[in-house]
Design a binder for these strands. Structure first.
Lengths: 277, 277
DNA sequence: CACTTATGGTTCACTATTTGAACCACAGCT
DNA sequence: AGCTGTGGTTCAAATAGTGAACCATAAGTG
């Protein structure tokens, strides 16, 4: 792997820790030499990607990503576009709704709106969503090209609960169902007692970039409510896709396929949403 | 320079462009070989730091920084802490107020609240603030260690307007005044007809991390109003510093800007690091 | 229609950068 | 004192990075 790749992996690892970390820990977690880890950290620090606490000598994510994120969001405001829809969906569903984005080969949670109920599902911003065991992962894969599906299913599939489906063929069946239905369902795939449903946010040419997902305690859901949440997730995800790619692009792109998406079931040409804010 | 440094500089350069860029342009702007630029871009893309438009083949900032920024902000919410103060200051001053952060050797604008007036100063998020020619730069330097001041003043100082002060000794005088007063004043240093005043946000041990600045049209300001804005900037900056580094308690009260100018130097109690989760 | 001049992308011999075992300095413990 | 844990540094050995020259394609241009 290239030096750049290693340094960026270090950054990634550091960002997934839930506290600031010392040099030795970072080196161990990244499987790097201490000297190497330090050179990386120094270099990353020069550019503001990490910073070292003056007192504790520990390292944390720096402020450079904040600037980059703002630059990206200024031109490409996924969060800004998506959050109102996520909020609205959380209100109407009264369940926890979260938004994920595909980045660096992984699907990460980038926003969460908690359910207003006392008994609710808690999801952390930044958490990773395994493809085979979460509704978001299934929804993302179901609309991805074959090559990506195959690549994901070739890896060993971790069994998180008694209900996690780890047989690639059975996962493939779920993906087929998802593609046909427009939204995925994960019944306790990652966490016992939690059922989720998700729909993909996609580029104008149909490539998914993330998902909208609703997570609820299994105990208070029925097949009907889950399907209702799924349909709402599709509506929200489509609305986000449209807003995100629709009016936003001053640069001349996609001369063809001027807005039509080759979706699997003809649901969302313009305004077939069930509810909207 | 290390490979990592070069790659991160590329990322920085790409982020400062105001449109997506092609391979050749990127290579030229970064003074890199085309092959090298491409290898960097591919590597950065693998980790989500850039992405390539499928249609135009141009590159833009990817979504990985968005995730990193959220992780940082979750533990280190400068924007979340600062924005209410900036807003409040923009209201009471009726002038444009902006927030800058030091990162990677440079001072960048990370938030702007526009003046409500028709005649107002426009500042872009992401813009760089030269140390000798802006109120923010002066305020930042004035509270930095000698070594950093010397390093900044050793470089050639660009003359942006007829009023820009480029003599290192004269800049040093401004810094001394700023340190004594607690806030800086830049009279048309970067842009003719614009006067600004700024105060530093600082760590508990006094090291500046960014600035709060007020920018107004010269035509409607007097010495008295500028000093009033300066005092208000100090109040806001100190309040932000305190809240940012002070307790881990989430925001309770709304910002009050009615206080006096507290002692501007080294007034923060040492504090143990905050925890998370 | 051949020619030019852009573009993005690739190759591979050469060489500069990265690597890591061993090192130091310091701090807290026993 | 000695031990064991930090963070941080060194330098010969080896690996990873480099870039001139290359290809393929597309859009002009006479």
């Amino acid at each position: 792997m290239s030096t750049i790749g290693k340094a960026l992996s270090l950054l990634d690892t550091l960002s997934r820790l839930d506290k600031e970390a010392g040099l030795t820990d970072i080196a161990r977690l990244c499987a790097l030499d201490k000297a190497t880890a330090r050179r990386f950290l120094v270099e990353l620090e020069k550019h503001g990607f990490v910073e070292q606490d003056q007192d504790t000598r520990r390292y944390r994510i720096g402020s450079a990503p904040v600037r980059l994120a703002r630059v990206r969001e200024a031109r490409f405001p996924l969060l800004r576009v998506a959050v109102p829809f996520i909020k609205s969906l959380a209100e109407t569903s009264t369940e926890t709704v979260h938004l994920s984005e595909f980045s660096g080969g992984k699907l990460s949670t980038i926003h969460v709106e908690d359910s207003p109920r006392a008994h609710r599902i808690i999801i952390d911003v930044g958490s990773l969503l395994p493809f085979h065991a979460t509704a978001s992962g299934l929804a993302f894969l179901a609309f991805s090209p074959r090559s990506e599906i195959d690549a994901a299913l070739r890896k060993p599939l971790e069994k998180f609960t008694d209900h996690t489906i780890v047989d690639p063929q059975l996962v493939q069946n779920l993906l087929d169902e998802t593609a046909a239905r427009g939204f995925s369902i994960s019944d306790q795939g990652l966490e016992a007692g939690v059922i989720s449903t998700a729909a993909p946010i996609r580029t104008p040419n149909g490539h998914p970039i993330g998902c909208v997902a609703v997570a609820a305690p299994l105990s208070r859901t029925t097949k009907a409510t889950i399907h209702e949440f799924g349909a709402q997730a599709v509506t929200a995800a489509n609305a986000i896709s449209e807003k995100y790619y629709g009016s936003e692009r001053p640069m001349g792109t996609s001369p063809k396929s001027g807005g039509q998406i080759d979706e699997p079931y003809g649901s969302f040409a313009k305004d077939t949403r069930h509810r909207n804010r």
